[in-house]
């Protein structure tokens, strides 16, 4: 579904990604782990088209999207939930959800969309008319995920969804990811919460200094504490 080949990315003069190769098959949950600054976020942003200068191939669903503008990548079925839960302040929860629908070709009616959201995210249903920035961090993260899901993307990229969120809500969030996985949704996940992420994922990549340094099944990596120590310990 997603195939990245020899991806290089720069921020200004600094060469952040130095030839990343990665793939995600349909229905798979793949996670990327590694220290801060390893290039995980830059990889996701490059795939979405948010990095100014990149080089290499990004194939999505058979199309080379590496030259496409951001909104076209969305149209191909690519969704991205950036870190620090970017819900739009000043907009209500419902308006934030509607925003996930207006750019999409998915002509689901808003009422239907809200019914579906209510099943998956009961917390949001009660807060539809509330201003989104008055919710807790965890609820805002749920909203950001729900907003990315309403367009029914083929692949959803999640960037550190559990960062700065209460433990109770992290449990709830990973339950949600498990349900998404069971529904056959393809996920590319970047997570600091290594154990949880590996228990959820099918496969995992370890990144260090702008490169993929290790690749294995999630189960194998979960057992390999030595490699976890080497690349993920702070």
């Amino acid at each position: 579904m997603l195939k990245i080949e020899q991806l290089n990315a720069w921020y200004g003069r600094s060469h952040i990604l130095q030839g990343v190769n990665l793939k995600v098959e349909a229905g798979e949950v793949v996670c990327m782990i590694g220290r801060n600054g390893a290039g995980k976020t830059t990889t996701l942003r490059s795939v979405m088209g948010l990095v100014g200068r990149i080089d290499g191939q990004v194939l999505f669903d058979g199309h080379d999207i590496s030259k496409e503008p951001v909104h076209r990548r969305f149209a191909y079925g690519l969704a991205y939930v950036p870190e620090e839960r970017r819900i739009v302040p000043g907009l209500s929860v419902q308006e934030n959800l509607r925003l996930g629908l207006v750019g999409s070709t998915n002509r689901t009616r808003e009422a239907e969309m809200i019914d579906r959201i209510a099943e998956t995210f009961p917390r949001l249903r009660e807060r539809l008319s509330q201003s989104a920035d008055t919710m807790s961090g965890g609820e805002q993260q749920m909203l950001a995920i729900a907003r990315a899901m309403v367009s029914e993307p083929k692949l959803i990229m999640l960037d550190e969804p559990s960062e700065g969120i209460m433990p109770v809500l992290i449990d709830e969030m990973f339950e949600l990811f498990n349900r998404m996985k069971a529904d056959g949704i393809t996920i590319l996940l970047v997570e600091q919460n290594v154990e949880r992420a590996l228990s959820l994922a099918d496969r995992a990549y370890i990144m260090d200094q702008g490169l993929i340094v290790h690749e294995d099944t999630a189960a194998a990596l979960l057992a390999d504490t030595e490699i976890q120590e080497r690349y993920c310990a702070v």
Binding site: M48, L50, P69, V70, H71, F74, A75, A79, Y80, P82, R86, V88, P89, G90, L91, E95, R98, L99, G100, V102, G103, S104, R147, A148, S151
Partner: peptide
């Protein structure tokens, strides 16, 4: 919907792009 995009875009341009809107 257009107004919604404009209000959201004034706050966070990038998120509007990510959600498939040609800003």
């Amino acid at each position: 919907s257009y107004g919604l995009i404009i209000r959201a875009g004034a706050r966070d341009q990038e998120i509007v792009q990510i959600l498939g809107i040609d800003v």
